[in-house]
Amino acid sequence: MKRFALCLALLVLTAATPREATVHLLQGARHFREGRFANALVEFKVARRLGSGGEADWYIAASLVKLDRAEEALEAFAVARREAPEAGDALLDYYQALACYEARLYLCADGLLEAVGEASGPRISAQARKLREDVSALFRTPPSPASIDWYHARAAQSRSAGRPVLAARYLEEAVRLAGRREDAYRLAEARAGLVSLSEREGPVVGGGAP
């Protein structure tokens, strides 16, 4: 059902897209619907090269989620939000939430899933509720300093690997987690890191955040 909904959304969005790109967007949607996510990813990437604009990035990101490439998906979602914010919808937010979840950005996922609510149909809503319950279970107690350290470490690794968007996602998660502790463990450091990324790497903070 969620695959069908993705295709329907795609059909609506392709109205203003170059014809060649539209062909590939629709072909990608067909692959996606039939579970051939690698083929779908290729078609969406071709569509983007042919001028589909940012909307293809949403579907590239969704395909990457299905291919278990969560971190790349998060980067693709950031591009999509920046390039074609109007093309997003509740279903795509759900896929982004999955990407966050897979990348252990649980509070990122929770925020997106909350926004998904009932807007994406009963089945997705049920799955979103289930995921939120899982996240909630993870945070019955405040996060440990060690877990926050892990996010800082991932942010540093991502940044040194030239992936500032991903670094920002991990630091944003670190901010959220610190906010759940009375001592606000490394909160200032995380915020400073985000400011630094904004200043040095361009508009990476917030652009991909839910």
């Binding site: 690698a38 990813l41 290729v42 990437k45 071709v46 090269r49 042919l50 291919l67």
Partner: peptide, 17 residues
């Protein structure tokens, strides 16, 4: 354009794509 995608994916190490 498929070739461009293929080149980029291969360069990034995404062999299956």
């Amino acid at each position: 354009p498929y070739a461009e995608v293929a080149e980029a994916e291969q360069a990034a190490g995404n062999r299956e794509i």
